[in-house]
Amino acid sequence: MVPLSYYLVLSGILFACGVTGFLIRRNIITIFMSIELMLNGVNLSFVAFAAHWHALSGQVFVFFVMVVAAAEAAVGLAIIIAVYRTRETLNVDRVNLLKL
C-alpha cells in the first residue's frame, strides 16, 4: 500500500523540475525535453488518480496525452531544425529577431 499522496508528491517534484528546466536552460532542445518532463509528471498523477478512484478513463487520458506529446515532439523538432538552418544557433537568447 503506497499512499496516494506519495505519488502526487513525486509527480509534483517532476513537474517542478520541468518548470525549472524550462526557465534556467538556454538550449532549445533541453527546454523541449523539460516540457516532456512536465507532461510525464502530469501523466503520473493521472494514473495515480485513476487507480485511486477506480476509473480507467484516467489511463485512457494518459494515452491521449502521449499521442499529443508525440505530435508536439514531431512538429517542435521540425521547427528547431528550421530555426537552426536560418540562425545557426540553438541558444534561445540568440534567437531574438523576427526577421533576419
Partner: peptide, 24 residues
Amino acid sequence: GMLVSSVLVAWVLLAHSGTGAVPV
C-alpha cells in the same frame, strides 16, 4: 522557485493526506 514550489506541494499533499492509499 523550484525548491519553494516542490516543498510547498509536498507539504500540502502530505499535511492533507486524508486521501487514502493505493492498493497495488
